[in-house]
Amino acid sequence: MSSARAFKYLPPRVADHIRGLGISARRPMQGGIQGLHRSPDFGASVEFAEYRDYIEGDAPNLIDWSVYAKTDRYMIRRFQDETSLRACVLVDASASLNYRQTGPVTKFEYACSLAAGLMYLLVCQGDAAALSFFTDKMTQRFEPVASTETLSPILLEMEKVEPKGAGDIEKSLHEAAEMLKQRSLVIVISDLLQPPAQLARGIQHLQHNRHDVTLFHVLDAAEIALPMHGLVELRDLESTEKLLIEADEIRPRYAQAVQGYLAEVSRICTACGAHYFTVETRTPMVEALAKRANLF
């Protein structure tokens, strides 16, 4: 980053560490400029794609004369086009992310850091990255940026966002699917606190629109381990509903329920062809980003 200001969600130390990482998409992308990613179109790369018969109107310099010499046919050699990709990072800003128990930061702060890191990676490799916050709908949207200079204002704006309100991931994903007209890499960063069936519908909508979907499931370790003891009155961050529990008594069954839920979400994502990663707020940012970056 050339900016002199240290961003909250992208400290220089993290930026330096992740600069070498790269992010790619599973599906061919349609970018506006030449890039690193496979395009569904043919172009002028070094990667051979196919041969086809010469058609009148084709430029004669495209004829593979070696093939003509062997087969007496005018064949044209075609190469895979490489393009840049458009990515859209969707960050859950519902109140449930405003939770911190065992990690160094809240889930929302971690999600923002993750989003900033991903966007930085994308920009660094010449792709365009957009950012949106959602709760039960899209609440804030930033247009795609393709350079670190244009990324900086977004990083600054991110710092002003506060998580609040009830979340509805399915609805937000439907809205995102309708909003994105071009094939994109859609990265959803959320605590995914919604019944898996609803979640699946949202992902399927994005997949159906040929987007490449990646889900980062941000969790605080306390959500899995339930480290409190004795009589505890829990207050739901989104609904303010209260529940009195005996933590020690309920812990095993709770952990079992959470693990079952995570497995269910993972299964759904696999079925939908989406990438799914669970990250705890204690996980170092580089490590979390590397999970996605080293995928291909």
Partner: peptide, 23 residues
Amino acid sequence: RTVQDFPSLMFFLRIDPRLSAKR
């Protein structure tokens, strides 16, 4: 008793929604 914020109660309700009443 301690009062604590929690992201969601859905897992508790999923386990045993009668927990509170029973107790």
